[in-house]
Simulated assay, not measured.
Amino acid sequence: MPFDPATRPLTPNEARVLATLMEKARTVPDSYPMSLNGLVTGCNQKTSRDPVMQLTDAEAQEALDSLKLLTLAFESSGNRTTRWEHNFQRGVGVPEQSAVLLGLLMLRGPQTAGELRINAERWYRFADISSVEAFLDELQERSPEKGGPLVVLLPRAPGAREQRWAHRLCGPVDTTAVSTSAPAGSGAPAALQARVDALESQVAALQATVQRLCAELGMADGMSPPGQE
């Protein structure tokens, strides 16, 4: 039976941790599977996140443990540091394209189909907005046997030209409250946001390389080898 948010919705912390694993698996594969430290850093990014959160290590670990019980995440073996991977597609029972859209909605909040297509560039390249809308429609019309609808189309916000979509993985959405809020990142040009995202990915990749080299040399991150000052 696929994951059913109507029976057991995700908490905001679980959604952020899960979506961050999904994002980093595609955008910085060198740092994936992820350590707890890297995961917390990704969860608490100031950009490409709505809302911005400040998860502690303990909160992220608690979310990981819960996601593991839901078969949405699992530990990777064979490394001195415990690392984590997501199991979203199989656990929820959706195709790759739908998983990408749901991951973006969990990370960035409600978005239009056009915004989702732009924001998905580094995850998956949709041919056009129509293909994005087709997968969103499919997620909205999901049958109860498969876990029910996973997205909802929000009423048009005042002054907005297009309607936004929201995910339902954390349970029912208050469409009235969400539709009156300002779109996330509405004041940031898409090109600038893409540049910031790329720089963050480069930093994350460098951090992963340093961590891997330290592990191979028997060093703690940024510390000297045992016995040396």
Rank of each mutant, 00 (worst) to 15 (best):
N119S: 12
S224R: 15
M223N: 12
L69Y: 03
A113P: 03
T209E: 13
A127E: 15
V152Y: 03
Q111Y: 00
A177V: 02
A190Q: 14
S66V: 06
E162G: 00
L107V: 04
A73D: 09
G148K: 01
L139K: 10
E229C: 09
L153G: 02
Q89W: 02
W165P: 00
A60R: 08
L10E: 03
P189D: 10
S179L: 10
T209W: 04
D57F: 14
R156Y: 02
E96N: 13
T112S: 15
G114H: 13
Q89E: 15
G187W: 02
D174P: 04
E141M: 10
R164S: 01
E115P: 00
R125H: 09
P95V: 10
S201W: 05
L21I: 04
K24Y: 13
D30N: 12
G187M: 13
L107N: 10
V152I: 14
Q228H: 11
S181D: 07
G78I: 04
E162M: 07
E14P: 09
K146R: 13
R168A: 08
S201Y: 02
L206K: 13
N13E: 14
F135L: 06
A15I: 07
D221V: 13
Q228M: 14
E59V: 11
A120H: 06
R168T: 10
A6H: 12
E133R: 14
W84P: 00
R122M: 13
E115F: 00
S98Q: 14
L116C: 07
P144V: 04
V196L: 15
L101V: 07
A177Y: 01
L206V: 12
V40G: 06
P172Y: 05
V52S: 06
E59I: 04
T7L: 14
A99N: 09
Q207M: 11
K146W: 00
E59P: 03
L67W: 11
L154K: 02
P155F: 05
V132Q: 03
F126Q: 13
S224Y: 15
Q97R: 14
T71I: 00
L36I: 15
Q61C: 00
A177I: 00
R164I: 00
F3E: 10
D174W: 06
F3A: 00
A120F: 03
D30S: 14
D50Q: 14
G103Q: 10
V132I: 09
D50L: 08
D197Y: 01
E59A: 14
G38S: 12
L18E: 07
L107F: 09
S143W: 07
L69G: 09
P110K: 02
H167S: 07
G227M: 04
E23F: 05
V196E: 07
N119M: 08
A19H: 02
P144H: 03
T82M: 08
A25H: 12
S130R: 14
L199N: 13
T209V: 10
T176G: 01
L150H: 01
G218L: 09
L70N: 03
D57V: 05
P226E: 09
L192Y: 14
G93H: 08
A19K: 01
T41Y: 06
E23M: 10
D174A: 08
L18N: 04
Q202L: 15
A58E: 11
S201E: 15
W84C: 03
S48P: 01
L67Y: 11
L21N: 03
I118R: 15
Q193C: 12
W165I: 04
T20H: 06
E59R: 13
V28N: 09
Q54G: 08
A19L: 04
A15V: 06
P12H: 08
L104W: 05
A204H: 07
K146G: 05
